[in-house]
Write a protein that binds this DNA or RNA. Structure first.
Lengths: 217, 217
DNA sequence: CCCGCAAGATGATCGTCATCATATAAGGCG
DNA sequence: CGCCTTATATGATGACGATCATCTTGCGGG
């Protein structure tokens, strides 16, 4: 073989990674194979030596996005003692930066409806990832039993996802920020108002680091 | 003119209505002009005498879906005394029936991401509708001041939308029902468990009334 | 150093889709 | 009753996109 052993794997990974961003940005049907390949620095020709079909790439890209979210949350959680983890996750999620950068954020608000339209078999795989997300968040409700923690995690996640989606519809004005604030408070269980976190997050700008795929959650 | 004055308007309305359902079902790019027209009992030819472009129909259809939701909630709310309205809205929203019938349900979970991808100008119009939804729900938090009610309405709506989206990803098994239950509880502000409502809603089947557009929220 | 192979590029094909030009026909009006 | 306007149908056009066949080229092995 004339290319280094991992060359193809690397290329494959790069295509998936770029596609994952672009699909979150444009939707599952919002961009074609040629553009996706161009985005990875290639032409459209070699596509079918990497993927069986466009559909296959879409599924891989969705999966990649969800995996990155989970991984990212784990890292975020590790930054703080257990008692503050939930707050950290929620406040990192519900920021204008995340709202304004769907390409680099959580896949559920941007692609959830498209995932829901996949075949039952495919959806089952995503349901498993969703379950992972839920369990990940549930670990950060230390004051409750496991059953309750799971319920609370589902509720908080729902609120996070729904707030982000609605904030994106609202654009980037005052109402949009208002939705984010309301979501933060609710996801944290209507705890006492957290002025500091709220203020800081609200004014966080969109980061842009030389085309690199920056997580904004 | 040789057709009755309202003939064209009726046809136009029928196209929008059907398209609104189909687009919720398949996504903004999930179905073509010809199929949308066929769905309204027409062929594709006359399309451009009704709409300037496909895009224009999509916008009209989105708008129609959101208007119907608002109208539907108003009706739902009127059924009960103020104290029970929120619960009624939430429990009607977070049912397996609604989850399984995106075509006849709320547009935000099914089309929210597509709406968020529209031009800022278009999005502004949808933001106004979203605001209407929020105010509508806020009216049903009688125990709070207007500012708080608005925040709570945003939070409840977010939870409702996010739960439905996640429940759709999860499919229709136990986990999906679990998400709906968690969402109901959270959206109602962690009030005392409401066994009756919860049970009844969970087993409600998908209604199907001879192709008519049945609201399931 | 050259050979052979596979990664990726080029370019063709076929189907689908939005849009538009023209044809048909329905039915109110004279 | 027949005509004329206009809603809808038929059919064309052009663009685009997924897929595939074939060519090019870089490099690891000999």
């Amino acid at each position: 073989m004339r290319y280094s052993k991992e060359h193809k794997l690397e290329t494959h990974a790069r295509i998936v990674k770029k596609a994952s961003a672009r699909l979150r940005e444009k939707g599952a049907h919002g961009i074609g194979v040629a553009d996706l390949m161009k985005d990875a620095g290639l032409t459209h020709g070699g596509f079918y030596s990497h993927f069986e079909s466009r559909e296959a790439l879409v599924i891989e890209a969705f999966t990649h996005a969800m995996d990155r979210s989970i991984e990212n949350w784990r890292k975020t959680a590790a930054e703080k003692p257990p008692a503050q983890r939930l707050e950290l996750i929620v406040t990192k999620y519900l920021t204008p930066a995340h709202r304004d950068a769907p390409a680099h954020g959580c896949a559920v608000p941007s692609l959830g409806a498209d995932i829901a339209r996949e075949s039952p078999k495919t959806r089952k795989a995503f349901a498993a990832k969703l379950d992972e997300m839920i369990e990940m968040v549930a670990e950060n409700f230390p004051e409750s039993g496991p059953k309750t923690a799971r319920r609370q995690a589902m509720a908080s996640l729902s609120t996070m996802v729904g707030s982000l989606l609605m904030a994106r519809i609202a654009g980037s004005g005052e109402m949009s920020d208002e939705i984010l604030r309301a979501g933060r408070q609710a996801a944290l269980g209507e705890a006492a108002p957290r002025k500091a976190a709220t203020k800081a997050a609200t004014k966080a700008p969109v980061r842009k680091t030389r085309g690199a795929s920056v997580r904004v959650e």
